[in-house]
Design a protein around this nucleic acid. Structure first.
Lengths: 132, 132
DNA sequence: TTCAATAATAGTAATGATTATTATAATTAG
DNA sequence: CTAATTATAATAATCATTACTATTATTGAA
């Protein structure tokens, strides 16, 4: 029944995800954890990121532009891709507001809506202050 | 200055996109247009689908699950992936409602929101009637 | 603590969707 | 009609991700 076994690599990956707010790609996680485990393999990073996501201990953020990103914050929220710097910012929203979007959708759909994935595009606070 | 030149292949791809509602992948478009142009290349299909999307004559629908899909209907609307059959359905919504989602987001974000990409997940009308 | 069972790893190969390359064919302006 | 130029077909290359495999690490029990 495939019992989960502890691994120091997975612990390190999870710790990094929980302390950063930069929504790293698998490759960025790899480069970071490599400092602690110089021989870690990119495949190990991918496998553990997916494991954590499947267990609900991390969130995978699919993006059309480049590789998927990962977030250690599992509280439901949205993300904004800055069209100026390309960075990913958090966008927190009340549960009721998130649910209201599903209800708005279901009112316009012949069927049922369970959930949704949204990626917003805009300009982050930093780029608003510092336009180039 | 790279003037656009007519091609029968592109015309056929566009015609197919405008008459189907199945939101085909590039490969599905390829298999269809192949009937009319048995020697057409998959690269040609990709290049023309991207061309049409860039010109605003088609829409690319990025999906985390499998290949991107294309839609000949350029009127702004959403899509629903059926968690039962995997099909993609249209979800039409008023312009005001679409804009209201951006406004809701911007009210919760330190920065500006320009647009968003949403993929809904649920059960389509057909699968609601015919559960398996 | 030792040991066997088994999951995890590192290293590498393979995959799948998409894009790039290039010689040839089709389109178009004059 | 012809020259200029874009589009094509065929193929190779790329990029993110997953699969494979021999070796290593973890763990539960003797």
């Amino acid at each position: 029944m495939a019992t989960l076994k502890y691994s120091r690599q997975r612990a390190s990956i999870k710790e990094y995800l929980m302390q950063t707010h930069e929504h790293p790609t698998a490759d960025t996680v790899y480069l970071h954890v490599k400092k602690e485990f110089p021989h870690i393999s990119l495949g190990t990073v991918y496998r553990n990121l997916n494991l954590l996501a499947d267990m609900g201990e991390a969130v995978k953020i699919p993006t059309p532009d480049g590789g998927d990103r990962f977030d250690g914050d599992t509280h439901p929220h949205y993300h904004v891709i800055c069209t100026s710097c390309g960075g990913v910012s958090d966008l927190m929203m009340d549960k009721e507001h998130i649910r209201s979007i599903n209800e708005l959708a279901e009112a316009n759909f012949d069927g049922t809506i369970e959930h949704h994935n949204t990626l917003f595009y805009g300009t982050c606070a930093k780029c608003c202050r510092n336009p180039h």
